[in-house]
């Protein structure tokens, strides 16, 4: 009896292993018009983060088009580097995709600052589609003395390193975007990193920091309620949702910075697969319920 029970367990494990093995069986897209097994989208951020919130509805919209399960896999860590790295070393067969934020374009450069070999290189990825894209907006608390970006810049020039800039973390999109603007404007602020966009919005509302750069939909509710005041948009033109806020270029600062999310395949993925994926993505985002920002 005892032997028997053990036997069951062994068999169970063997079958499980077989199933897993079959899942990994290779079949290229080169000669097939459609995927034949599930596709995984690696999201290099934790569940509930900006990228995850784009990926999950997007994956749900993609499934009926590709007629295969599309699985979102969160591989968070090191500001996104871990997930991007794991995507970069996976098989270029079109079954593993990466959904990254704009930071994918510069995170590997951070390694250079510390004399580390870069965790990945951007030439490993082929862009399939940009799913969302918004210019950053630099905002201050409603009760702050700065009514316009001119006030702000004049004051920052007078008091270098005294005005506190908050961000979602060091080398985050919020950090680099704001620093780009201030560097181009010739200003020096002191940086206080937080552990995400939410906490830094908290800090701004609690007046623990003076300013921060956000994606527009993060602060639109606060703006309407009159708790934060957007000063400047880091885009090529003014935003419809805040038409009175000038762009950086209008103020003579040549800075543009977008927080975008994009879908990538790996270099070496068969042409046919790329084509199928691109048209599927197009169809998916065309659907009204396709993305939270649509």
């Amino acid at each position: 009896m005892k032997m028997n029970r053990k036997g069951h367990v062994v068999w169970g494990l063997a079958i499980l292993a077989l199933c897993l093995g079959m899942g990994g069986e290779e079949k290229s897209w080169a000669d097939e018009p459609c995927p034949t097994r599930s596709i995984q989208i690696i999201v290099p951020f934790p569940p509930g983060g900006v990228a995850d919130l784009v990926a999950r509805p997007f994956a749900a919209a993609l499934e009926p088009i590709l007629k295969q399960p599309v699985v979102v896999v969160n591989k968070a860590g090191a500001g996104g580097t871990i997930g991007i790295q794991s995507a970069a070393v996976s098989k270029p067969d079109g079954y593993t995709l990466l959904l990254a934020l704009s930071s994918v374009t510069y995170l590997h450069e951070v390694d250079r600052l510390f004399d580390r070999p870069p965790a990945y290189t951007t030439d490993r990825f082929i862009p399939l589609a940009m799913l969302t894209g918004d210019p950053l907006v630099i905002a201050v608390h409603q009760e702050s003395p700065w009514k316009t970006v001119d006030d702000f810049m004049a004051d920052a020039r007078k008091r270098p390193n005294k005005i506190k800039l908050g961000s979602a973390g060091i080398y985050s999109v919020m950090h680099l975007g704001a620093e780009l603007f201030f560097r181009k404007a010739g200003l020096q602020l002191s940086h206080v990193p937080y552990t995400g966009g939410g906490p830094s919005l908290n800090a701004l509302l609690g007046k623990h920091i003076d300013c921060a750069a956000f994606g527009p939909n993060v602060i639109i509710g606060q703006m309407k309620a009159g708790t934060v005041r957007p000063l400047v948009v880091l885009g090529s033109k003014r935003l419809d949702s805040m038409p009175e806020v000038p762009t950086a270029k209008e103020k003579g600062v040549d800075a543009e910075f977008y927080i975008w999310s994009g879908l990538f395949a790996l270099k070496g993925t068969p042409e046919g697969a790329i084509k199928v994926l691109r048209s599927a993505v197009q169809e998916a985002v065309g659907k009204p319920s396709g993305s939270p920002n649509s």
């Binding site: 569940p47 983060g49 919130l53 995400g196 939410g198 908290n202 509302l205 509710g221 309620a225 708790t227």
Partner: peptide, 11 residues
């Protein structure tokens, strides 16, 4: 206030 205090309220 519409501010997420942690990852779960954010979702």
């Amino acid at each position: 206030l519409g501010v997420p205090t942690g990852p779960i309220p954010a979702v």
